[in-house]
Design a protein around this nucleic acid. Structure first.
Length: 700
DNA sequence: ACGCAGACTTGGAAAAATATTT
DNA sequence: AAATATTTTTCCAAGTCTGCGT
């Protein structure tokens, strides 16, 4: 595939003059540093001109409108708020989706608070759907307290914490070039240490990584060094590497006091820089420490791996806070790049990173009001989808028959997104990132069609790298019409051509927006994940089982979602061993149990003969012992099962980002499972709104 | 419509903190 | 108390999607 880009490069350049053809092309030929220029579009469409598109617009259902208005809901109007409790949980009616806002209700927005609200909100929920279709609005006015897009009124913080300055290596730690000791200049040395620290990592064996590193490293060298050091393979970083290993070893061996001291320092830092004030609440900041310099590690086959991520200085930093707040002071002798007061965004600090040129931010912790509210809204949007998903499904099935190619492609893509929980698949700049795809960016080479496979008809075999270069491999029976459409889409195309050549995420999302306000491709993932959890919990929870078994059921339900979303992980390095340990524990327990049973039996025999109170008591206690052991054994077995099934599945992402926490809270309440068994402290903080809001009857 | 910057969510790995064994 | 195993937190890359300027 790498030749893919290169190969078409020239052709593309002079090729798209046909303006009309391609939709997607993105030919941006920007040569950044002159080196990389290969982006190119997939020269997909070369043949299909058609472009006839018409207006589709199903028109049918009326529609939602898209006016904009203040969609934001109710930021807690502070003052009146009784302290903590009501933080989120704006009454349902206020909620409304933010993005494509809606109108009316703003007026209403009343900060009534919380709990009591829940009930009402429940009802509202049902009502609410309907109105969506009203038209309207004007948007012009609405000066609300938090008019359109305003995220806060007051914001004050202490600015970021910078990475500690570079500490030169001790004299006795040598670097060798071509077998000879060489003293590096401080800058060159610093960059060398980045490489040395990664020596054990597979990265450093990769050609691209080495090449990128070496190129950037040379930029930091003095002329003299540059003249000498011309071949990375002749560089010997082993002393440096060993030194760092020793350091980390030493760190582990530190005395109690030393460790405590460090801990206290960290706490102090956290206390001072880890919080901000946003609208009368003290909120935890997620990442108040600036990323230290180092070597960029991309994931998968990233063309930029190994490049130097430069040190961020105050002069790179943009501070965002309210006008009436105290502006954080830059480190002495430095100044900020800029101080701005933009309350339409939620970040406190930003800077531009040098590898991709993208902006990085310091934002609030998930436990904050601003994040929690947004999260809650996300699930409300998914619940709205629940109400119209049948209709949408019927519609895309109809669209499989459309005369318009574009509509068919859209319908098939949406079917995949819905059925398989694929990501939208934005297009990416070639050469800037690893070659990964999502639904809309699938290429012909990523699927195989089998009219018949393993006794099933119309099977589509997917095999592609998705986000983070995680492989998606799946064989899925699809409806005949879908299958036929895919054949059609693939006609006359090369493997590297786009499967959906007349579709991209913009087109798809625009269409979704017409189907339901606030609907985008990713809402399907949220919806399908949450609804799956709910269904699976219902199906798997056995009322009579004990708590550990219930938790296993929960984990299995969670796992079903993770599998749906393709959340995979590398099996833990110690997996096999840990499995064996567990097994031997189980065996040991079994033996204990056998012994205990034997004891019990003989005690019973004794009792039969003697019949005195004392032996009876012995029997009782033996019985208890057996029971206890049985329980322990079962707990271990459950644990083993759980672990085994989880070998390559990562549950974290779905738990944190896709599953409506209220489903979990309700389940815990219903079955008497302590919430702590499912959510740890951090998770409970993040989901405080849900813990507070949902009762056992909650339904997604 | 497009191209792009910007803002914010989602993601697994690695590091750090804890818990459990030895 | 040291060694290990497990869980939690941190880290920061990689997506999605919006909105703006053209």
């Amino acid at each position: 595939k790498q030749e893919r880009g290169r190969m078409w490069e020239t052709e593309d350049l002079n090729e798209h003059k046909d303006s009309e053809k391609k939709h997607k092309e993105k030919e941006k030929t920007k040569h950044k540093d002159g080196s990389s220029e290969k982006h190119k579009d997939k020269h997909k469409d070369r043949d299909k001109e058609k472009r006839k598109e018409e207006k589709v617009r199903a028109s049918g259902d009326a529609k939602i409108k898209k006016e904009k208005e203040n969609g934001f809901s109710s930021p807690p109007r502070i003052k009146d708020e009784p302290e903590d409790d009501g933080y989120f949980a704006p009454p349902k009616e206020d909620i409304k989706p933010l993005k494509r806002p809606r109108e009316e209700d703003d007026a209403d927005y009343k900060p009534k608070k919380i709990k009591t609200e829940d009930l009402k909100k429940e009802k509202k929920r049902k009502l609410e759907e309907e109105e969506v279709s009203k038209e309207t609005v004007a948007l012009g006015g609405l000066e609300e307290r938090y008019p359109e897009g305003i995220k806060w009124k007051f914001l004050e913080h202490k600015g970021p914490v910078f990475a500690p300055p570079y500490e030169p290596l001790p004299e006795n730690v040598k670097f060798y070039y071509d077998g000879k000791v060489m003293k590096l200049s401080p800058k060159a040395e610093e960059v060398a240490t980045f490489f040395a620290k990664m020596l054990d990592h597979e990265y450093t064996t990769k050609e691209i990584f080495r090449k990128n590193f070496f190129k950037d490293w040379r930029k930091e060298m003095t002329n003299e060094e540059k003249n000498i050091i011309t071949n990375l393979s002749k560089c010997d970083f082993t002393q440096m590497s060993q030194y760092f290993k020793a350091q980390s070893e030493a760190r582990k061996q530190m005395s109690k006091e030393e460790k405590l001291k460090i801990k206290e320092e960290n706490e102090k830092l956290l206390k001072e820089y880890g919080f901000c004030i946003m609208d009368n609440h003290r909120e935890r900041i997620a990442n108040f420490k600036i990323e230290p310099p180092g070597l960029f590690r991309g994931r998968g086959n990233h063309p930029k791996m190994g490049m130097l991520k430069r040190r961020i200085m105050p002069e790179d930093i943009i501070i965002n806070c309210s006008k009436d707040a105290k502006v954080p002071s830059p480190p002495t002798g430095h100044k900020w790049k800029e101080v701005r007061h933009d309350n339409k965004v939620t970040w406190l600090v930003s800077w531009t990173e040098n590898i991709q040129g993208s902006i990085k931010y310091i934002m609030l912790n998930p436990s904050s009001r601003i994040k929690g509210e947004k999260d809650w809204q996300k699930y409300e949007t998914a619940r709205r989808l629940k109400k119209c998903v049948d209709k949408i499904r019927n519609q895309y099935r109809e669209d499989w028959k459309s005369k318009e190619m574009k509509v068919r492609q859209r319908a098939v893509a949406l079917y995949f997104i819905d059925k398989l929980a694929l990501r939208a698949g934005n297009e990416k700049e070639e050469g800037e990132t690893a070659d990964t795809v999502g639904c809309c960016s699938l290429r012909v080479e990523h699927i195989n069609l089998h009219p018949e496979l393993d006794g099933q008809e119309y099977v589509v075999e997917f095999d592609f790298l998705g986000k983070d270069s995680i492989r998606y491999y799946n064989k899925v029976p699809v409806e005949k019409r879908v299958f036929k459409n895919l054949q059609l889409f693939m006609e006359n195309k090369q493997p590297e051509d786009d499967l959906f050549d007349r579709l991209n995420t913009g087109i798809l999302n625009k269409h979704l927006q017409d189907l339901m306000e606030g609907l985008t491709a990713k809402v399907f993932r949220t919806y399908n994940a949450s609804i799956t959890l709910q269904q699976q919990l219902k199906e798997l929870t056995a009322p009579d089982e004990n708590i550990p078994a219930k938790i296993l059921s929960y984990n299995r339900a969670n796992r079903a979602v993770a599998i749906l979303c393709n959340h995979q992980r590398a099996p833990p390095k110690t997996f096999e061993k840990s499995m064996m340990n567990l097994q031997s524990k189980i065996d040991a327990k079994k033996e204990q149990l056998a012994d205990a049973r034997r004891d019990l039996k003989s005690a019973k025999a004794d009792a039969k003969v003697l019949k005195d109170a004392k032996t009876k008591k012995v029997v009782e206690s033996k019985k208890k012992a057996v029971q206890r052991l049985e329980e322990q054994l079962m707990k271990l077995e459950v644990q083993a099962t759980d672990r085994e099934e989880n070998k390559q599945i990562a549950l974290g992402t779905s738990k944190l980002n896709y599953l409506d926490p209220r489903i979990t809270v309700a389940w815990c309440k219903k079955w008497g499972v302590p919430i702590e068994k499912i959510y740890n402290k951090t998770q409970r903080e993040k989901f405080a709104w849900a813990i507070d809001m949902a009762d056992e009857d909650y339904e997604f």
